[in-house]
Design a protein around this nucleic acid. Structure first.
Length: 217
DNA sequence: ATATCGATTATCT
DNA sequence: GATAATCGATATG
Protein backbone atom coordinates (compact mmCIF):
# COMPACT_ATOMS: atom_id res chain seq x y z
CA UNK A 1 0.00 0.00 0.00
CA UNK A 2 1.22 3.47 -0.88
CA UNK A 3 2.90 5.55 1.78
CA UNK A 4 1.69 9.13 2.20
CA UNK A 5 3.75 11.58 0.21
CA UNK A 6 4.19 13.88 3.12
CA UNK A 7 5.68 12.65 6.36
CA UNK A 8 3.10 12.33 9.12
CA UNK A 9 2.89 15.01 11.77
CA UNK A 10 4.04 12.57 14.40
CA UNK A 11 6.94 10.38 13.37
CA UNK A 12 6.88 7.00 15.01
CA UNK A 13 10.01 6.16 16.97
CA UNK A 14 10.67 2.49 17.57
CA UNK A 15 13.06 1.37 20.30
CA UNK A 16 16.39 -0.10 19.25
CA UNK A 17 16.60 -3.60 20.72
CA UNK A 18 19.31 -5.08 22.90
CA UNK A 19 20.75 -7.31 20.17
CA UNK A 20 21.77 -4.13 18.34
CA UNK A 21 24.21 -3.32 21.15
CA UNK A 22 25.50 -6.85 21.62
CA UNK A 23 28.22 -6.22 19.03
CA UNK A 24 31.53 -4.41 18.72
CA UNK A 25 31.59 -0.73 19.72
CA UNK A 26 32.75 0.11 16.18
CA UNK A 27 29.67 -1.44 14.58
CA UNK A 28 27.32 -0.02 17.17
CA UNK A 29 28.86 3.44 16.81
CA UNK A 30 28.54 3.44 13.05
CA UNK A 31 24.94 2.27 13.13
CA UNK A 32 23.93 4.56 15.97
CA UNK A 33 24.37 7.53 13.63
CA UNK A 34 20.92 8.77 12.65
CA UNK A 35 19.16 7.15 15.63
CA UNK A 36 17.22 9.28 18.12
CA UNK A 37 17.91 9.90 21.80
CA UNK A 38 14.66 10.36 23.70
CA UNK A 39 14.14 11.96 27.11
CA UNK A 40 10.72 11.85 28.67
CA UNK A 41 10.14 14.28 31.53
CA UNK A 42 6.58 14.74 32.70
CA UNK A 43 4.64 15.29 29.52
CA UNK A 44 7.58 16.86 27.71
CA UNK A 45 9.47 14.87 25.11
CA UNK A 46 13.02 15.87 24.25
CA UNK A 47 14.47 14.23 21.15
CA UNK A 48 17.72 14.63 19.26
CA UNK A 49 19.29 12.84 16.33
CA UNK A 50 22.67 11.20 16.89
CA UNK A 51 25.19 12.90 14.59
CA UNK A 52 28.54 12.11 16.27
CA UNK A 53 29.76 9.20 18.41
CA UNK A 54 33.00 7.52 19.47
CA UNK A 55 33.78 3.85 20.06
CA UNK A 56 35.69 2.74 23.17
CA UNK A 57 36.91 -0.81 22.94
CA UNK A 58 37.14 -2.21 26.43
CA UNK A 59 40.16 -3.62 28.21
CA UNK A 60 42.32 -3.60 25.09
CA UNK A 61 41.81 0.13 24.50
CA UNK A 62 44.13 2.35 26.58
CA UNK A 63 41.79 5.32 26.11
CA UNK A 64 38.75 3.47 27.48
CA UNK A 65 37.63 3.76 31.08
CA UNK A 66 37.52 -0.02 31.15
CA UNK A 67 41.22 -0.32 30.26
CA UNK A 68 42.34 -1.03 33.83
CA UNK A 69 39.57 -3.50 34.54
CA UNK A 70 36.26 -3.36 36.33
CA UNK A 71 35.70 -0.80 39.10
CA UNK A 72 32.63 0.59 40.78
CA UNK A 73 32.60 3.52 38.38
CA UNK A 74 32.81 1.61 35.10
CA UNK A 75 30.86 -1.52 36.08
CA UNK A 76 28.09 -0.82 33.56
CA UNK A 77 30.58 -1.20 30.70
CA UNK A 78 31.20 -4.80 31.78
CA UNK A 79 27.52 -5.59 32.18
CA UNK A 80 24.90 -6.45 29.56
CA UNK A 81 24.59 -4.30 26.41
CA UNK A 82 22.18 -1.41 25.95
CA UNK A 83 22.65 0.31 29.31
CA UNK A 84 23.73 3.87 30.10
CA UNK A 85 27.25 4.40 31.44
CA UNK A 86 27.57 7.97 32.67
CA UNK A 87 30.71 9.49 34.08
CA UNK A 88 31.57 12.85 35.61
CA UNK A 89 34.59 14.64 34.20
CA UNK A 90 36.67 17.76 34.82
CA UNK A 91 34.64 18.54 37.91
CA UNK A 92 31.92 19.97 35.68
CA UNK A 93 30.40 17.70 33.08
CA UNK A 94 28.62 14.42 32.55
CA UNK A 95 29.07 12.25 29.47
CA UNK A 96 26.76 9.50 28.17
CA UNK A 97 27.77 6.11 26.79
CA UNK A 98 25.81 3.02 25.91
CA UNK A 99 27.30 -0.37 26.86
CA UNK A 100 28.16 -2.75 24.03
CA UNK A 101 29.37 -6.35 23.60
CA UNK A 102 27.90 -9.37 25.40
CA UNK A 103 27.81 -9.31 29.19
CA UNK A 104 31.26 -9.77 30.71
CA UNK A 105 32.98 -7.98 27.85
CA UNK A 106 33.59 -4.24 28.25
CA UNK A 107 32.94 -1.75 25.49
CA UNK A 108 30.89 1.33 24.87
CA UNK A 109 29.93 4.17 22.59
CA UNK A 110 30.19 7.81 23.67
CA UNK A 111 27.48 10.20 22.47
CA UNK A 112 29.30 13.32 21.29
CA UNK A 113 26.66 15.37 19.49
CA UNK A 114 22.97 15.47 18.67
CA UNK A 115 20.82 17.48 16.29
CA UNK A 116 17.90 18.84 18.34
CA UNK A 117 14.54 17.63 16.99
CA UNK A 118 11.95 18.43 19.64
CA UNK A 119 11.82 20.06 23.06
CA UNK A 120 14.21 22.80 22.02
CA UNK A 121 12.76 25.28 24.51
CA UNK A 122 13.35 22.82 27.34
CA UNK A 123 16.88 22.12 26.19
CA UNK A 124 17.70 25.83 26.05
CA UNK A 125 16.36 26.26 29.56
CA UNK A 126 18.45 23.34 30.86
CA UNK A 127 21.53 24.76 29.13
CA UNK A 128 20.92 28.28 30.37
CA UNK A 129 21.03 29.82 26.91
CA UNK A 130 18.57 31.81 24.85
CA UNK A 131 17.97 30.89 21.23
CA UNK A 132 18.63 33.85 18.98
CA UNK A 133 19.78 32.10 15.85
CA UNK A 134 21.42 29.06 14.31
CA UNK A 135 24.57 29.43 16.37
CA UNK A 136 22.64 29.22 19.63
CA UNK A 137 20.82 26.12 18.42
CA UNK A 138 24.14 24.42 17.79
CA UNK A 139 25.33 25.23 21.30
CA UNK A 140 22.52 23.14 22.78
CA UNK A 141 23.77 19.64 22.06
CA UNK A 142 27.07 19.94 20.19
CA UNK A 143 29.46 18.21 22.59
CA UNK A 144 29.22 15.30 25.05
CA UNK A 145 28.89 17.55 28.11
CA UNK A 146 26.45 19.88 26.40
CA UNK A 147 24.03 17.18 25.28
CA UNK A 148 23.93 15.72 28.78
CA UNK A 149 23.12 19.12 30.22
CA UNK A 150 20.41 19.73 27.58
CA UNK A 151 18.82 16.34 28.34
CA UNK A 152 19.32 16.64 32.12
CA UNK A 153 21.43 13.49 32.17
CA UNK A 154 23.41 12.88 35.37
CA UNK A 155 25.15 9.89 36.83
CA UNK A 156 22.90 9.82 39.90
CA UNK A 157 19.82 9.86 37.74
CA UNK A 158 20.69 7.75 34.73
CA UNK A 159 23.78 5.58 35.23
CA UNK A 160 22.81 1.95 34.61
CA UNK A 161 19.50 2.84 32.96
CA UNK A 162 18.16 0.48 30.30
CA UNK A 163 18.22 2.44 27.05
CA UNK A 164 16.18 -0.09 25.06
CA UNK A 165 12.81 0.56 26.65
CA UNK A 166 10.36 3.40 25.89
CA UNK A 167 9.07 2.82 29.40
CA UNK A 168 12.28 4.44 30.65
CA UNK A 169 12.71 8.21 30.86
CA UNK A 170 15.79 7.90 28.63
CA UNK A 171 16.01 5.57 25.62
CA UNK A 172 17.25 5.25 22.07
CA UNK A 173 14.95 4.87 19.08
CA UNK A 174 14.80 4.60 15.32
CA UNK A 175 12.53 6.88 13.30
CA UNK A 176 13.54 5.46 9.93
CA UNK A 177 16.21 8.05 9.16
CA UNK A 178 19.13 6.57 7.25
CA UNK A 179 22.64 7.95 7.68
CA UNK A 180 24.00 8.70 4.21
CA UNK A 181 27.62 9.68 4.26
CA UNK A 182 29.60 8.83 7.33
CA UNK A 183 33.03 10.23 8.13
CA UNK A 184 35.49 8.46 10.43
CA UNK A 185 38.23 10.35 12.26
CA UNK A 186 40.47 10.06 15.30
CA UNK A 187 38.80 10.46 18.68
CA UNK A 188 38.79 13.86 20.37
CA UNK A 189 40.19 14.92 23.72
CA UNK A 190 42.22 11.84 24.57
CA UNK A 191 45.96 11.33 24.93
CA UNK A 192 46.29 7.54 24.85
CA UNK A 193 45.61 5.62 21.64
CA UNK A 194 44.76 9.00 20.15
CA UNK A 195 45.24 8.18 16.48
CA UNK A 196 42.83 5.28 16.05
CA UNK A 197 39.93 6.00 13.67
CA UNK A 198 37.04 5.49 16.10
CA UNK A 199 35.04 8.71 15.85
CA UNK A 200 32.01 8.55 13.57
CA UNK A 201 30.01 11.50 12.33
CA UNK A 202 27.45 12.48 9.71
CA UNK A 203 29.37 14.29 6.98
CA UNK A 204 28.65 17.98 6.81
CA UNK A 205 26.22 17.99 9.71
CA UNK A 206 26.21 21.38 11.43
CA UNK A 207 25.69 19.94 14.89
CA UNK A 208 28.91 17.92 15.01
CA UNK A 209 31.20 19.08 17.83
CA UNK A 210 34.71 20.43 17.76
CA UNK A 211 36.60 22.40 15.18
CA UNK A 212 36.28 21.70 11.47
CA UNK A 213 36.94 18.13 10.54
CA UNK A 214 39.93 16.80 12.36
CA UNK A 215 41.94 14.55 10.04
CA UNK A 216 39.36 12.41 8.24
CA UNK A 217 40.70 8.91 7.80
C1' DA B 1 39.69 32.68 12.81
C1' DT B 2 42.52 29.68 16.20
C1' DA B 3 45.04 29.22 20.73
C1' DT B 4 45.40 28.98 25.48
C1' DC B 5 43.71 28.67 30.06
C1' DG B 6 40.95 28.19 34.43
C1' DA B 7 37.12 25.91 36.66
C1' DT B 8 36.05 22.08 39.83
C1' DT B 9 35.52 17.18 41.76
C1' DA B 10 34.97 11.93 41.42
C1' DT B 11 38.06 8.52 40.89
C1' DC B 12 42.23 6.14 41.04
C1' DT B 13 47.55 5.71 42.21
C1' DG C 1 48.24 14.02 45.05
C1' DA C 2 47.36 13.72 40.04
C1' DT C 3 44.40 13.12 36.53
C1' DA C 4 40.52 13.75 33.25
C1' DA C 5 36.33 10.82 26.77
C1' DT C 6 34.92 19.26 28.57
C1' DC C 7 33.30 23.90 28.27
C1' DG C 8 33.30 28.82 28.10
C1' DA C 9 35.92 32.86 28.44
C1' DT C 10 39.69 35.55 27.11
C1' DA C 11 43.60 36.74 24.25
C1' DT C 12 45.71 37.32 19.86
C1' DG C 13 46.25 37.56 14.42
Amino acid sequence: MPRPRKSPAKTEIRPVDRAFYERSPQRVARELLGKVLVRKTGRRLLTGRVVEVEAYLGEADPAAHSAAGRTERNAVLFGPPGYAYIYFIYGNHYCLNVSCEPEGHAGGVLFRALEPLSGIEEMAKARGVTIGGEKDLIKLTSGPGRLCEAFCITRARDNGRDLTSPGESLWIGDDGYEARSVVVTARIGITKAASHPLRYLLAGNRFVSGRKNILPI
